[in-house]
Amino acid sequence: MSTPRAFITGITGQDGSYLAELLLAKGYEVHGLVRRSSSLNRHRIDHLTHEERLHLHYGDLTDGVSLVNLIHAIRPDEVYNLGAQSHVKVSFEMPEYTASTDAVGTLRLLEAIRAADLDCRFYQASTSEMFGATAPPQSESSPFYPRSPYGAAKLYSHWVTVNYREAYGLFAVSGILFNHESPRRGENFVTRKITQGVAAIEAGITDTLVLGNLDAVRDWGYAPEYVEAMWRMLQHDEPTDFVVATGKGTSVREFCEAAFSHAGLDWRDHVTYDAAYERPTEVDALIGDASKARDLLGWKPETDAVTLAGIMVDADRAKIAHLLNR
């Protein structure tokens, strides 16, 4: 049996790095798309660079020619489209770039696959932000109501993936993942901002953490578990879309309390509010119903938000201790 070959966009991100680890452990040959920049941003996959089955390629979701050339050259068995401008607040400031990357980028990649006449399986990273103002719990049959340029761009990607599945018979699925975090989460996302803040306050580096809306409720899971669900979707007999979530809502305030409590601190002594961190249109509550993934994929989450907060705080504590002791 030949070695399965996977192509991952966004391989240097949180999900891409965990997915690369998972696929390499399963014996895949892994190819990753990397954007060219003046500085390297590959710290999440540095520990994988010794792997002979890992290959990185320069390209960009905004450059259709690079995608066509790579798909023709690699001819992957599985394609995971995780690349995106993924910060909701930033999407209000960079709406056109967000649309070109997150929406049209998916179309470019699907067209590259179609043009290559490639018999592969395609995973699209959809998002709970597509539900936006829809009341929870949200499932695969819930109506979409995005509340940001990011959510709207991802909704285009979601529906164009469905269209290519139905129009061209492509094995194409969308994983509608609710918020999922880890120590590899970007530092400008609220969970990581909180856990880094806790570690810095505990170390005496600062005394204050500034946040925006504390009442927003999200369904927070653990990223390594969620990439397992991605892989299972492409092993399923039929292409269909899945919600991936824990089914439990936690407010930013509650996550904050759990993170500070893990370090023996009271969050109320350190957290201040700044309206500058609010979005122009807020999403009040996202809580997913992942019954379909549980029933058809045998997938279920193992890590709750409180445990996740502790994992992330410990990782940021270790990082700060390392920096202070250098």
Rank of each mutant, 00 (worst) to 15 (best):
L23H: 02
K292F: 08
A293K: 01
R192G: 08
F260G: 14
Q138C: 14
P136L: 06
K154Q: 04
G288N: 08
T62W: 03
N179R: 12
Q14F: 04
R279G: 00
I8K: 03
L265K: 11
V210A: 13
Q14A: 04
D237Y: 07
D60T: 06
L234N: 11
V313Y: 05
E257S: 10
A223K: 00
E282L: 10
H158I: 02
P136E: 09
V190R: 00
R232H: 08
V90W: 08
Y18A: 05
I201M: 04
T303R: 12
Y150I: 14
C120P: 03
G264L: 05
K292T: 04
R317V: 06
P95H: 10
W231E: 08
L22R: 08
M233W: 06
F122Q: 06
F131E: 01
H47M: 04
D314P: 02
D207W: 01
L265A: 03
S38G: 15
D102W: 01
S126L: 00
V283Q: 04
H43F: 13
Y226F: 15
D119H: 10
K248C: 09
V227H: 04
G16E: 02
L24N: 02
D215L: 07
I320Q: 07
S182K: 07
A263G: 00
Q85V: 09
T62V: 13
D77E: 14
A203F: 06
Y226W: 04
I311V: 11
L177F: 15
D284L: 15
P146I: 11
S17W: 00
R44T: 09
V79A: 00
D119L: 12
I71M: 05
G59A: 03
A259V: 02
I113K: 03
R44H: 12
A99S: 11
E111N: 15
Q85E: 11
A103C: 00
T9S: 15
R218W: 00
R121Q: 01
E254M: 04
L23C: 01
V88Q: 05
H43D: 15
A293N: 03
M94F: 15
V217I: 11
F171G: 03
K319F: 12
G10K: 07
S174I: 08
G132P: 12
G132V: 05
L211D: 01
I205S: 12
T208V: 10
H180I: 03
S86G: 15
D102C: 15
H322T: 13
I205G: 08
E21R: 13
E78I: 07
A318W: 03
Y277G: 14
R317P: 06
V104K: 11
F260T: 01
I194P: 00
E129M: 11
L54A: 09
V65R: 11
G16L: 02
G169P: 02
A116Q: 02
R36W: 09
E29C: 11
L40T: 13
T307P: 06
D274P: 02
N188Y: 12
A73V: 06
M94P: 02
I45H: 05
H47A: 12
I201E: 14
V244I: 15
E278F: 07
V217T: 06
S37Q: 14
I8R: 01
P4H: 00
G204T: 03
A321E: 12
G10R: 00
V306C: 04
E93N: 03
T303G: 01
E302K: 13
A216N: 10
G83A: 09
R44G: 02
M130T: 15
A112W: 01
D119M: 13
G298E: 01
N179Y: 12
G105L: 02
